Deep mutational scan, measured.
Amino acid sequence: MLDDRARMEAAKKEKVEQILAEFQLQEEDLKKVMRRMQKEMDRGLRLETHEEASVKMLPTYVRSTPEGSEVGDFLSLDLGGTNFRVMLVKVGEGEEGQWSVKTKHQMYSIPEDAMTGTAEMLFDYISECISDFLDKHQMKHKKLPLGFTFSFPVRHEDIDKGILLNWTKGFKASGAEGNNVVGLLRDAIKRRGDFEMDVVAMVNDTVATMISCYYEDHQCEVGMIVGTGCNACYMEEMQNVELVEGDEGRMCVNTEWGAFGDSGELDEFLLEYDRLVDESSANPGQQLYEKLIGGKYMGELVRLVLLRLVDENLLFHGEASEQLRTRGAFETRFVSQVESDTGDRKQIYNILSTLGLRPSTTDCDIVRRACESVSTRAAHMCSAGLAGVINRMRESRSEDVMRITVGVDGSVYKLHPSFKERFHASVRRLTPSCEITFIESEEGSGRGAALVSAVACKKACMLGQ
C-alpha cells in the first residue's frame, strides 16, 4: 500500500517536472537572447534605426563620474514606483581627507489618484512632500541643488532636461508624456511658492545606482535594477552614441532593455503563462523582457503555473481556492519566502493557508518547484541581457580580458534567497573573457542622484555659470 502511494507521488512529481521543464533555458538559448539583445542595442544607438529599435539606448548626458572633490548639501528625489523618497545628502571631506556622503531620508507613498490623475496632481503632491521634508529638517530658507531620480523612459536633451516617452509600472498621470519632466517639477514648486529649489540633474535609477557604486569602486561602469521592473545602464564610447554629437570619451546610456521583445525577438521563448500575464497587464505587448524578470510579474506567473497544475490534477487534489483564482493573489514576496523555507515546509504551508488552501507535504514541495522554475528562468533571462552589455563593452574597448564592476539594486536581487547566485553564475558562463565584480548599492537611487548633481554643480562652477 505504502509502495503504491510512494509510486503515485513519484509519478505525480515526474509529471510536474515535465510541465515545469518549459521554463528551462539551455545555454544556447541564452546565447541567442544575448546576441539578439546586442543587435537591438546597436539599432538603438544608431541614428537611422533608433526610432524602430525596441531597446532605445537613451543617452543620459552623464559623462563624468564623481571624483571626490564636490562638497555641499544636496536634496535628492526618487520616483520610480508607488513609494517616493526625499533625501538630504551631505557631501563633504571625511576623516583623513576621505570623501564622505551622509544621508537623511523619508519615504512617502503615492496615492492612487496622483498616479493615475493628471501630471499637475502628481507633481503638486511631490512638491508637497518636499515642503514637508524641508519643514522637518528646518531647511526651507536654503535654496538647495536638487537631483531627481526618475525611473521611467526619458529622452534627455541635457542633464536637466528630459522628455517622458511613456509611463510604465502602473503610472498613468495624463499630460506628462511628451513633456519635460524637470519643467513639470519646477512648475509645481513655483505653484507652491513656499520654498526654492535648483533642479540641476535628472537621472534614471540605473544611472543613480551606477554612480553610487562608483563611489565604492571606481571600476563600476554598469548599473542595473532588478526590482519591480528590470533595466540597466553602462558607459558607452561616445563615438557609438549617434544621437549625441561628439566622439570623445564616454557617456552613460540608459538601455531601457525592459522593452526588448516588443518587436518579436522573444516570441519563441514566451510561454502561455507569459501571454496571460501580458494580456492582463496595463501595457499589453510592451516591456516583454521586463515581464519575464521583474517583481511586478513574478508572483503572478507562479500563480498561473499553480492553476495549470491544479487543472492537471497534480496539486491540491485538483481544487483551487477562490483566493488562488484571484489575479495578483500570489505576491512576489511569497516566491522569495517559499524558496527561503528551511525544509520543514512550515513557511510554505503558512503562505498557502493564507490563500485558503490546506496543502499536503507533496503540495508544498511542488509549489516550491514552481517558484524555483519561474525565478530561475528570470535570473537566466536577466543574465543574457547583462552578458550582452558586458561583452559589447569588452569588444568596443578591444580588451582581451576586461575587469568590470556592476552596481545592482532592486528588491528581487536583494531579497530573493537564490536569485543573485543563479544570476551571477549564468552571467559568468556567458562572459568567459571578463572578470566581473557585483556590488549592491546602498540607498543607491538617492545618493547617486545627489552625486550626479554634485558633478553638475562642479561643472557649472568651472564653466562660470
Rank of each mutant, 00 (worst) to 15 (best):
D132F: 08
H156S: 10
A173V: 08
D198E: 14
K172E: 13
L47K: 14
V199H: 10
G261R: 01
S360Y: 06
K142Y: 05
Y297S: 09
D341R: 07
M462L: 12
V62Y: 05
D363R: 00
C230F: 04
E14Q: 15
A425L: 01
G81K: 11
R358A: 11
C252P: 09
S321D: 07
S383E: 00
D409F: 10
V222L: 03
E67Y: 09
G343H: 10
T362K: 02
D29T: 03
S151Y: 05
S373N: 06
M381Q: 01
R345Y: 15
S360V: 08
E177M: 13
P153R: 11
E96G: 13
F423Q: 03
T354W: 05
S336P: 12
R191Y: 02
A456G: 09
T332Q: 14
L306R: 00
M235H: 01
E196P: 08
A11G: 10
D194Q: 14
L164K: 15
W167H: 15
K140I: 09
S411F: 14
F148P: 01
C220D: 00
S426N: 14
E272N: 08
M235S: 03
Q106L: 11
E237Y: 12
E319C: 14
F269V: 11
D409G: 15
A11H: 08
M197C: 10
A21G: 15
D274M: 00
T228Q: 15
V101D: 10
R394D: 06
V389N: 00
D113F: 13
K161W: 07
R275P: 03
C457Q: 08
I159V: 15
N180M: 02
R186F: 05
D341I: 03
N283S: 13
G72F: 03
D363H: 03
I348H: 01
V33H: 05
A11W: 10
T342E: 13
L270T: 15
T118M: 14
S109Y: 08
M197D: 09
R85H: 13
V181S: 11
R43A: 07
S396M: 08
A21I: 00
T342A: 09
I225H: 10
I390Y: 00
L386S: 02
G261F: 06
L292K: 06
G410C: 02
M107K: 15
N313G: 10
Y214E: 04
P59L: 06
L271W: 01
S212F: 03
D363I: 00
I130M: 07
T103A: 12
R325S: 13
L463V: 13
Q323L: 10
V452S: 03
S433N: 10
D365Y: 09
V33N: 00
G448D: 06
S426P: 02
R7V: 14
R7D: 13
Q465Y: 07
E221I: 05
L184Y: 12
E96P: 06
N313M: 06
L77I: 09
F123T: 02
S360G: 06
N179E: 11
G343M: 10
G448W: 09
G229I: 06
V335F: 03
V86Y: 07
R308L: 02
D400I: 10
G44F: 00
S54I: 05
R191F: 04
E67L: 10
G80D: 08
R275Q: 15
R345P: 09
C382E: 07
E22P: 15
W99F: 11
V71Q: 15
G407M: 02
Q323A: 09
M381Y: 12
M238H: 03
V101G: 06
I211E: 03
K56R: 10
D187A: 10
Y413D: 01
K296R: 14
T103W: 05
D409T: 13
H141N: 11
L324V: 07
D194E: 07
A456I: 12
L357Y: 11
G410M: 11
C457N: 15
D409I: 04
G464Q: 08
G223F: 04
S174I: 11
S127Y: 01
P284Q: 10
V305E: 00
P145S: 11
K143S: 06
G223M: 02
Y61K: 04
G227V: 02
E372S: 06
K90Y: 04
L47Y: 15
V207E: 02
K32V: 10
C364H: 03
G223K: 00
D311L: 05
T49N: 05
V154D: 05
E279A: 08
E272D: 09
E51P: 10
S280K: 13
D278V: 04
L352V: 09
I390N: 02
K31H: 03
L315N: 01
L144N: 00
S383Q: 00
F23D: 01
D267R: 03
K12A: 14
Q286W: 07
R397Y: 07
H137C: 10
S212H: 14
R85Q: 14
V203Q: 13
K12P: 06
T437N: 10
N180L: 11
L301K: 08
L324C: 05
L77R: 01
G318K: 07
C371N: 01
K143T: 14
N166V: 05
E440P: 10
E17I: 15
L355S: 01
K296D: 13
V244F: 07
L88M: 07
F260T: 00
S336H: 05
V335T: 06
A379I: 07
T326H: 13
E28I: 08
A425R: 03
L134Y: 04
M87R: 04
M235Y: 02
L304W: 08
D29F: 07
V367G: 00
V33P: 03
A378N: 06
L185H: 11
S398C: 09
F74P: 01
S353I: 07
V335R: 00
R428H: 09
T103P: 01
L415C: 14
V338A: 06
T65K: 05
Q38F: 05
A208Y: 02
M251N: 03
G258A: 15
T60C: 14
F123E: 04
E128K: 13
K169G: 08
A53M: 05
L451V: 10
G175T: 10
M57S: 01
V338Y: 02
K15R: 10
Q287T: 07
L324Q: 00
S426F: 08
Q347G: 14
S375C: 12
M235G: 02
K102R: 08
A232V: 11
M107F: 13
T361Q: 12
H141R: 10
E322C: 10
E216Q: 05
E95M: 13
M57A: 00
L415W: 08
I348W: 02
T405P: 03
R308N: 04
S445F: 14
V89T: 08
H141W: 10
L415E: 08
D4W: 03
V452G: 09
E312I: 07
